[in-house]
Each structure stands twice: as structure tokens, then as C-alpha cells.
């Protein structure tokens, strides 16, 4: 073997070694994002959403998030899901009684928060949609929300520079179908889990204590509110007429879905998680503060044929009790959720 040959071999070895070292170092340096994974908080029940039909993946979530914050879903590009569902107010539209859509048109109701949707079977204040996957079609096609058609949205995405590649990452091919589009959006929404409030940390014994006032408020809440605002989701997800004076007579609530006289003016019992951040309150956003809500239950109940039987005589509440309940309700505020970078637009 000639010297020349040996020296060449050595040079090659050194080169390979250097390359390997470089590759190793670059790996070390690379900031590895943790994989996005759906989880069930320890104090939560079993989810009702069937995750086996749409397992959450990092790429699927990232696609869903991009879609959620993209005005491409609306007719003129002006409205995204995030327009009416803003993270800093637990994905509601802050400061509006009725939510605003395209061309600043008013919608029928106050937008509901996007949180813990894996634990919810029916959507909207009237429960008209029964599958999270099917939800997004409604705001896209509503004339006063995004005023677009789903086939159009899919075509815009197909001709977009970035989306076909994102669909490929998420689902294996560049093909953009209704199912993939809706399931990606669902993946983002499924990850909007709010379970890190002061209350959650207290109930899970994570070294957090509630004040005397908050604890007293929790006791009163359990006695007087938890029949409807039940369990760890703080709702039994039933539809009830809570004695509000009729606002818009056209909006008959659950009756629009069941066509049953008995369901007139019934609306879904909303979860109270992050209630402090989701002002204003009620299906049409007519009440501006938690104090006003409790005043309504104490002395504002209007009798009507479909009024909830629990509310016939209102809920007796002293000023002191109301204050304590509100102190407790504020422990349901989940700042981590509302500032979680994983879920935010930028």
C-alpha cells in the first residue's frame, strides 16, 4: 500500500469524523420543541370526544392553529376564528355583547369560550352542532360571521404557498379534504385545555391554598349554584331557561333545534371556568358583571312557562354571600391558559 493511499485514507477518516462531530453538535444546539400531546387533567372526567378518530399530533395541531388564526377562512380575508375568540379573554370576544363578524355585522349571540371542548358533546348556546369536527362549517358559512363557503376555503388553501405542505406534514399527502381541514381545526381546539387555575391547583393538592373568603364562597357555590354548574367543568351541559326577560324574541334558544315548545328560551348552562375573563355574560351578553349576574339570580327572575323549576323563587343570596361566591369564581381564572404561547397567534 503506498503512503499516498494511507494519507488519503486518514484524511477521509478525519473528514468523516469532523462531519459527524458537526452533526452531533448541531443536534445538541437545535432547540427541540416538545411534541404536542393531548392530556386529561387529573381532576377532569373522561373526554367525550373520540380521540382515536382524530389523534392530536404536533403537525396537525400546528396546521389547525395556522387555520384558526388565518382570515383566509372568511370571504374577504378580514375575519379569522381568532377574531371572535381571543385568547386573552379565554377565546371569547371581549367587550361585545353580541359578537361582530364580517362587515361589522352583528351575530345573534355572545361568542362562547373555546376551552375544554373535548369534554363537551354539543356546541353553541342552543346545542345545534353535536360534533366538534362539524363545528367550524357554521361560522365559515354564516353570512354575518365569515360569509364564505367551505368549497371556496378548501380551494384557496389548495392554491396557497404554504398550506399544501402543512397538510402533507400533518396527514401524509398534500391533499386538502374536508375531513383533514376540519380535523386539523379540531386538533387546535382540543388542545385549548384550561385546567391550571388556582382552584385546579388547590383541588389537585399542588401546594396552593384558597383564602378563607374563597373557601367560604366555594361552600356557598356548591349549595346554591352547583346543581347546574356541576362537576369539574362547572356545567351539566343541559339547556335551561334561567329567568331572563325575553330579549330578542326571535332567539328562542334550544327550541330552534328541537322545535319543542318546552325548550323555548332555554340556553345551555355555560362552564364557569375563566368566567372572570369572559365578560359580558348570558347568551346575548346583556349582563356586564358577575355582580349583575348574581343580582339577576337573587331578584331578577322572570316567571314564564319554561322557567327552570329550580329558579321559581330565585336564589336567596346576601350581599356577603355574593361577594364570597365571586371571590371563589375568580379562582377559576387560568392565567397560564390565557397566556400559553403554544396557543397564541404570535
Amino acid at each position: 500500500m503506498s503512503n499516498l493511499y494511507i494519507s488519503m485514507l486518514m484524511k477521509a477518516c478525519i473528514l468523516i469524523f469532523t462531519l459527524l462531530l458537526f452533526a452531533f453538535l448541531s443536534c445538541q444546539n437545535q432547540h427541540v420543541e416538545p411534541a404536542v400531546q393531548f392530556y386529561v387533567p387529573k381532576n377532569f372526567p373522561k373526554p367525550v370526544y373520540d380521540l382515536s378518530k382524530n389523534p392530536v399530533t404536533t403537525a396537525g395541531f400546528e396546521l389547525g392553529k395556522a387555520l384558526f388564526y388565518d382570515g383566509i377562512l372568511s370571504r374577504d380575508g378580514s375575519i379569522s376564528c381568532g377574531s371572535c375568540h381571543q385568547q386573552q379573554s379565554a377565546f371569547t370576544q371581549h367587550g361585545h355583547d353580541l359578537s361582530h363578524g364580517i362587515d361589522d355585522l352583528l351575530t345573534l349571540r355572545n361568542s362562547l369560550p373555546i376551552q375544554n371542548l373535548a369534554w363537551q358533546q354539543e356546541f353553541f348556546w342552543d346545542g345545534g352542532v353535536f360534533d366538534l369536527d362539524l363545528f367550524a362549517i357554521s361560522p365559515i358559512e354564516a353570512h354575518n360571521e365569515m360569509d364564505e363557503t367551505l368549497p371556496n376555503v378548501l380551494n384557496k388553501l389548495r392554491n396557497h404557498a404554504r398550506y399544501p405542505g402543512m397538510f402533507e406534514k400533518a396527514f401524509g399527502t398534500k391533499e386538502i379534504t374536508t375531513e383533514r381541514f376540519l380535523k386539523a381545526l379540531a386538533q387546535f381546539q382540543l388542545m385549548c385545555i384550561s385546567a391550571n387555575s388556582k382552584y385546579d391547583k388547590y383541588i389537585r393538592n399542588e401546594g396552593v391554598t384558597l383564602s378563607q373568603e374563597e373557601l367560604a364562597g366555594m361552600q356557598i357555590f356548591k349549595q346554591k349554584c352547583a346543581t347546574c354548574h356541576a362537576g369539574e367543568l362547572f356545567s351539566d351541559f343541559s339547556y335551561r331557561n334561567n329567568g331572563l326577560p325575553i330579549g330578542n324574541p326571535e332567539d328562542t334558544g334550544r327550541e330552534r333545534i328541537t322545535l319543542s315548545e318546552q325548550d323555548k328560551y332555554k340556553f345551555r348552562v355555560p362552564s364557569l371556568r375563566n368566567v372572570e375573563a369572559t365578560r359580558p355574560y348570558m347568551h346575548d351578553g346583556r349582563l356586564r358583571s358577575l355582580e349583575a349576574v348574581l343580582d339577576h339570580y337573587e331578584k331578577g327572575i322572570v316567571q314564564s312557562p319554561t322557567l327552570d323549576s329550580q329558579l321559581r323563587n330565585g336564589i336567596p343570596l346576601s350581599a356577603d354571600e355574593k361577594q364570597k361566591i365571586i371571590a371563589f369564581l375568580k379562582t377559576l381564572t387560568d392565567e397560564e391558559f390565557m397566556s400559553n404561547k403554544l396557543l397564541s397567534e404570535f
Binding site: K53, D133, T149, T178, L182
Partner: peptide, 14 residues
């Protein structure tokens, strides 16, 4: 499930 809504049942099909 939305995966079973294809062809003329596909809401995203023009």
C-alpha cells in the same frame, strides 16, 4: 364521523 361524509355528502365538495 366526517370521514364518512364523502361524495355528495361532502360539505366541502362544490
Amino acid at each position: 364521523d366526517v370521514s364518512k361524509r364523502i361524495g355528495v355528502l361532502d360539505v366541502g365538495n362544490a
